[in-house]
Amino acid sequence: MAEAVSSNDNQYLTFTLERELFALDIASVREVLELVNITRVPRTPEAIRGVINLRGRAVPVVDLKQKFGMGSTARTVNTCIIIVEVDIEGEPTVLGALADSVQEVYEMESSQIEPPPRMGTPIRADYIRGMGKSGEQFIIILDINKVFSSMELAGLAQALGEAGAEAREA
C-alpha cells in the first residue's frame, strides 16, 4: 500500500492588512521576519518602502497596504515582513512584503476556494487568485506573481543602481 505524500499544494500563509485577512501560497513564502530597519531608496514608487539587508543581500520591501490603496502600514509589535519569491518575466526575485500581522498556515482544498469576486474588495481583481473562508471571515488569496509588476521592479532596480553609482562616486 502506497503512503500518502504530504504536499504544500493547499497550504496558505494568512496575514492581515487592516481588518482584512489575506493569504499567500506557502510555496512562494521563504520566511517571516520581525520588522527591521528599512532603508529608503530615492526615486522609487511610494509603495516600495526601501530595502533591507537579508544575509548580505539588498531585498526590496513593498508596503502591501499602500500598493492596495489602504494607507500605510504602521510600525507595531505585530508588523512583519514576509519574504517571498516571485517570478517576474521568468526570473525568480526575492521581495519583502509588509503586513500588519501574520496569522497561521491555513490549509484549504481547492474545492473550498471560490473565484475572485468582480467587486467589493479593496484590491484589483487580477491580484486575487481566489477567495477562501475561515469560519465566517473571508480570506483573500493573492496571486503574488501578479501583485508585483515588472515595471515597478525595473524602476526599483534602476533607482538601486543609481544610488549605488552615487555612493561609489562620493
Rank of each mutant, 00 (worst) to 15 (best):
L64I: 08
N53P: 06
Y127P: 01
D143F: 05
M151Q: 03
G155E: 11
I82S: 05
L21E: 13
A2I: 12
M108V: 14
E85M: 00
T44D: 07
V147Y: 01
R55F: 02
R19D: 15
V51W: 08
T76S: 03
N78H: 12
T93M: 09
R57P: 05
I141N: 13
S72T: 06
E104W: 08
D143K: 10
S110E: 15
V62D: 05
D25I: 05
P122H: 02
L35S: 07
A47Q: 15
E31T: 00
I123D: 04
Q158H: 14
I141E: 04
R55C: 06
V105K: 13
Q158E: 15
A27Y: 12
E136F: 04
S28H: 12
A125H: 14
V84P: 11
A2W: 13
P45Y: 03
A74C: 02
F15H: 12
P92W: 04
V41Q: 10
V36I: 06
S72D: 11
G69S: 07
L95F: 10
I144Y: 01
V62C: 07
L13Q: 07
M70S: 14
E31M: 12
R19V: 14
P122W: 07
S6N: 13
D63W: 09
K133C: 10
E109D: 09
E34P: 12
G130I: 08
A2Q: 14
A167G: 02
M131E: 05
P60Q: 10
V32C: 07
F22S: 04
I38N: 05
R118V: 12
Q11V: 04
G135P: 05
F148H: 00
E18W: 11
V94L: 06
L160I: 09
N10W: 13
V77D: 15
T39N: 03
E31K: 03
Y127F: 13
L95V: 08
G71L: 05
I83Y: 06
E152Y: 03
I38Y: 01
A99L: 01
L98E: 01
L13G: 11
L17R: 03
T121P: 03
V147C: 10
R55E: 00
S6L: 13
D100N: 09
V105N: 08
L153T: 10
E85I: 05
A154L: 13
A47M: 13
S28I: 12
A2Y: 14
E85S: 02
P116C: 06
V41E: 08
I128W: 06
N78L: 02
A23P: 00
L24P: 00
S149I: 06
I128V: 07
D63P: 08
A157V: 13
